[in-house]
Amino acid sequence: MFEARLANGNIFKMIVESIRELVVDVNIDCSTEELSIQCMDSAHVALVSMSLSQSAFDHFRCDRSLSLGLNLPNVSKIFKMMGRDDTMVLKAEDSADKLMLMFENDKSGTIADFELKLMAIEAEQLGVPDTAYKCSISMPSSEFQRIVRDLQVMGDTCKISCTKEGLKFSATGQIGTGNILMRQNVASEKEEDHVTIDMEEPVELNFALRYLNFFTKATPLSPTVILKMSPGLPIVIEYPIEQLGHVKYYLAPKMEE
C-alpha cells in the first residue's frame, strides 16, 4: 500500500494549483523515493515535471510503485476544503482504484476525509536529457510573474535574450513594444532579491506569453525561479520547493522566420 503524511499539506495544494490549468488528467507516480509527475499539455508545447521527495513527508510508505490517475480540477476542488495549517494524508491500496485524502487539523481536532476514484491515464512520457544550458538565471519569482503579466499587455510573444548586458524581456504588439532589462544584482542583503546571471554564450529565444503566464501559478511555491536556456532548445523554468523537490516547466520556443 501507499501512505504519505505531509504536515504542511499546503505545499501539495500549491503544487496542484501550479499545474492544474496546464495539465488536466495526470498520473502521480509514487515510488519509494518520491511523488512525481511528468505531463505535457494537450498541444505538446509545454511539459510539467514535478518531484516531491519522500523526505518532505513525516511518514512515507510505498510498498510498490504506483501510478495514481487523477483529474486535477477535481483534486483542486477537494483541496479547497483543506485548512491552511492542516496535515494532509494520502492513502491508496496497491490495487489503486481509489485515493483517500485526509485533512487533519490539530488545533480543532477535525479530520476530513475524501475518496477520489482513480483513472487509467495513458500519458506520453518524454525523455528529457540532462543538458548543460548556455544561460542560467536565478531571479525573484514575484519579479518574473510581474514581468510576464506586464508584457502580456504588449503582445502574446516574449523574446527573452540573455547577453552580457543582462536579461531582457521584450514584447511587441498592436500598441507598440515593451522591453524590461534585468541586470545581475547580488548586492541586496536579502538573498531572495538576488538576480544571478550565468551566461556562457548569449541566447535569444521567443516564447508564448500565455504559457509563461500559466507557469507563474507556481510563484507561491518558491521565492526564486530559475530560467535555463540554450540556443534552439526549450526553456526550463524551475521553481525549487525548498530542498524537498521542484516544479519544472519546459516550453518549446517559437520559431524565428
Binding site: H44, V45, Q125, G127, V128, T157, P234, Y250, K254, E257
Partner: peptide, 14 residues
C-alpha cells in the same frame, strides 16, 4: 506571429 514549435521536435517519447 511566429510559428510555435512542438516539444516532440526536441525530446523523444519514451
Amino acid at each position: 506571429d511566429l510559428p510555435q514549435s512542438c516539444l516532440l521536435a526536441y525530446y523523444e517519447s519514451r
